[in-house]
């Protein structure tokens, strides 16, 4: 069964998003929380890598973290879905395990 991967650091600061993207399999989900949400910005350096990954994985951002950082929902890269904390819980429950890329 598939895995929920969480990333919480900006990809401009740490390699954790890159490492996460290198370690997912078909059907996994990736959730960007905390500072990692800045990587989801449309036109940003990581938007393309995230879009590319959507062929095999679903990608989410935590909406409250996005809002807190002044990024509007319509300004995130295409195909990335927004969830709230309840959605985070549902994602964790829906996968077999949670892997945090701390």
């Amino acid at each position: 069964m598939s895995t929920l991967h969480t990333v919480n650091k900006s990809p401009f600061e740490r390699p954790s998003l890159k490492t996460c993207l290198d370690h997912v399999v078909q059907g996994d989900a990736i959730l960007l929380i905390e500072d990692a949400v800045v990587g989801a910005r449309k036109g940003g350096a990581f938007a393309e890598a995230l879009s590319h990954k959507q062929a095999s994985c679903s990608i989410y951002v935590l909406a409250p973290d996005l809002a807190a950082r002044g990024i509007k929902a319509e300004d995130i890269a295409e195909g990335i879905a927004l969830v709230d904390y309840g959605g985070f819980v549902d994602l964790a429950a829906g996968k077999a395990r949670v892997c945090a890329w701390l």
Partner: peptide, 9 residues
Amino acid sequence: SDRLVMFGD
């Protein structure tokens, strides 16, 4: 636990 969820740095 069915799921262990970690929060850290």
